[in-house]
């Protein structure tokens, strides 16, 4: 049971990445894979701040800012230098690896016996349950902020930017600027996942971000399956489903491991799972039109 609770907790930790990918991919229609780098960047800053025995609440805004900067850089390269978004993301992600390594000084920073976000509250003797309450509060707060943002006039303009650029420009929005802000937001959310995960697992590792973008993609694709199936248009419901997607994704991985699949094969299994989630709705559709 604890095994699955852990999976849910991990899902909560990854909700930042899921929301980040939702914003870049679904709202802005930009394939952004700065993710791997900005996630680790968040974890690196968290580790450095905490190791200096500075409060986790100082690390938090710092992580948000550096995450936003990395996203803004990708956005700048994409919009102002007119480079394909995917390539811009790869370039930033790639260079962030060196940045992260330089900041860390070595490839792994343990966070043992340093108080972090999971020590700020003690509601239960069960450490997992305690983490659950803290993470749940954290995730709900983020979702409320993002949900509110998307409902504001600025948020509507964001959503329109990914939908019809001609329209929103003719309505007075500088779309380049909007995309830079959007990618900054997406990557600050991603960095927040790095912030949570590093404290949850008790270390920051230079390789922890490799391929992590698939966690976000998988969560969003799961959410999208529901969104399309139930024809959902509400912003709040969509956000909720993205968060649910992040948890389902981790649960599926946990089940896979529980079934005895070799942990070395986990990335392969993950990729296949994402593929299956994408294909399932199409299979149904095709068979309906064929027969």
């Amino acid at each position: 049971m604890d095994f699955y609770l852990t999976a849910i907790l991990q899902g909560f930790c990854f909700s930042g990445i899921a929301l980040g990918i939702f914003i870049s991919m679904k709202i802005f229609n930009i394939p952004d894979i700065t993710t791997d780098g900005s996630y680790t960047l968040g974890a690196v800053f968290t580790a450095i701040v905490l190791m200096h025995h500075i409060s986790t609440f100082i690390a938090l805004p710092l992580v948000i800012i550096v995450g936003a900067l990395s996203g803004a850089l990708t956005g700048f390269i994409h919009t102002k230098l007119k480079i394909n978004a995917l390539l811009a993301g790869i370039l930033v992600m790639y260079s962030l690896y060196s940045v992260n390594l330089t900041l860390m000084g070595r490839s792994n920073l343990p966070l043992i016996n340093v108080p972090g976000i999971f020590n700020v509250l003690n509601l239960s003797n069960n450490a997992n349950l305690n983490s659950f309450f803290i993470l749940f509060t954290f995730v709900v707060l983020i979702a409320l902020i993002i949900g509110f943002l998307l409902k504001t006039d600025f948020g509507i303009a964001m959503r329109a930017t990914g939908d019809s650029e001609t329209m929103i420009r003719s309505l007075g929005v500088n779309t380049d600027r909007m995309k830079i802000i959007g990618l900054a937001l997406a990557n600050s959310l991603t960095a927040l996942s790095g912030y949570l995960v590093s404290q949850y697992q008790g270390f920051t590792d230079i390789n922890m971000g490799i391929g992590i973008v698939i966690v976000g993609l998988g969560s969003v694709i799961i959410a999208e399956t529901f969104i399309n199936f139930f024809n959902i248009t509400s912003v709040w419901l969509s956000l909720g489903l993205v968060l649910l997607g992040a948890v389902i994704f981790q649960l599926v991985l946990a089940i896979t491991l529980d079934l005895g699949v070799d942990a070395n094969l986990l990335k392969l299994v993950t990729a296949v799972f994402v593929l299956v989630v994408i294909i399932i709705p199409r299979l149904k559709f095709n068979s309906l039109t064929k027969f």
Binding site: T152, D153, A157, S170, L171, G172
Partner: peptide, 10 residues
């Protein structure tokens, strides 16, 4: 709000 800034308010 075509001629106005798009603010962070609903």
């Amino acid at each position: 709000i075509r001629t106005q800034p798009k603010r962070l308010s609903i």
